[in-house]
Design a protein around this nucleic acid. Structure first.
Lengths: 145, 145
DNA sequence: GGATTTGGTTATCAAATGATAAGTAAATGG
DNA sequence: CCATTTACTTATCATTTGATAACCAAATCC
């Protein structure tokens, strides 16, 4: 396998995913939420409950800025903090009911848009697509570190 | 195929790609280039030559802002504009030699980081990965519209 | 050939984001 | 038990980004 071919494909592929995701999420962002906040909500939605430090790490933003943005999201009642009983320095963040609702709706819109791309795919095509995602997710785009 | 499973996987997958790409490109950004500018350079690198309107469309930023940022990149000698002889309103953008060099280096760093994720993959694994990218790129994450 | 559209520019403003310094309180480690 | 580290907060500032209005010149459209 030619290494450069692989790299070129990786670059092109990640760029494409990035762009399509960008298109898909255009206009769905809940009222009054900034892009960074949306991205945090998305991360919380799939990883909750999660500490501020973890959010800071994974979203690659400084703790002060993470703290500020989470505070804003809490003010908007989209998420809430609660103490870790075993370590009182730590605070976990989770979505509120409203936050769940908002993100569910956002994900629904994204889903609907993806659906238009998949509407003339056969059952077999879908199987293949799911398999491809599993392969790449587990082998290349894993995020645990 | 359960539609929700597919959506959940799509959401999780795009989030993972996004995050990994973010990690991969951390710290590689050439001196004095902002995130938006880097993203534009990346787009130009894989799509050149390309008009300002097209960049504006695909990067989903307004023409005034596109114009401003491209101007900055031209000032930095990373890209250059030239006229379309058949339509004198249009201007194409392409990387300069220096721009090519800078992006090649950036892509090289990203490639190297991906390599560490793939170092214990067999030839067969790599084939499978490339195939998976081809499937997803052509069926789900195509960007021509 | 005059109105409209297309492609792009300049200027300006507000908001979002990133970075830094300085602080608190709880846990951990000799 | 004192020093250090971890988890998080508050405040502040500069830069980036997004949005809008007003403009020019070339192309196109009746």
């Amino acid at each position: 396998m030619d290494e450069n071919t692989l790299f070129d494909k990786l670059i092109a592929f990640t760029a494409a995913v990035h762009q399509v995701k960008h298109e898909m999420t255009q206009g769905i962002k809940p009222e009054g939420i900034t892009p960074v906040q949306y991205s945090m909500l998305e991360y919380i939605a799939v990883s909750q409950p999660v500490t501020l430090s973890k959010i800071s790490d994974c979203q690659q933003m400084s703790m002060p800025n993470t703290s500020r943005e989470i505070k804003k999201l809490c003010d908007k009642q989209l998420c809430e903090k609660y103490d870790d009983p075993s370590d009182r320095r730590k605070q976990y963040v989770r979505l509120t009911g409203e936050g769940e609702r908002v993100m569910k709706e956002a994900f629904g819109h994204v889903g609907a848009r993806f659906l238009t791309r998949l509407q003339n795919a056969s059952e077999q095509d879908l199987q293949e697509i799911v398999h491809a995602m599993d392969v790449l997710h587990s082998r290349v785009f894993y995020t645990d570190k």
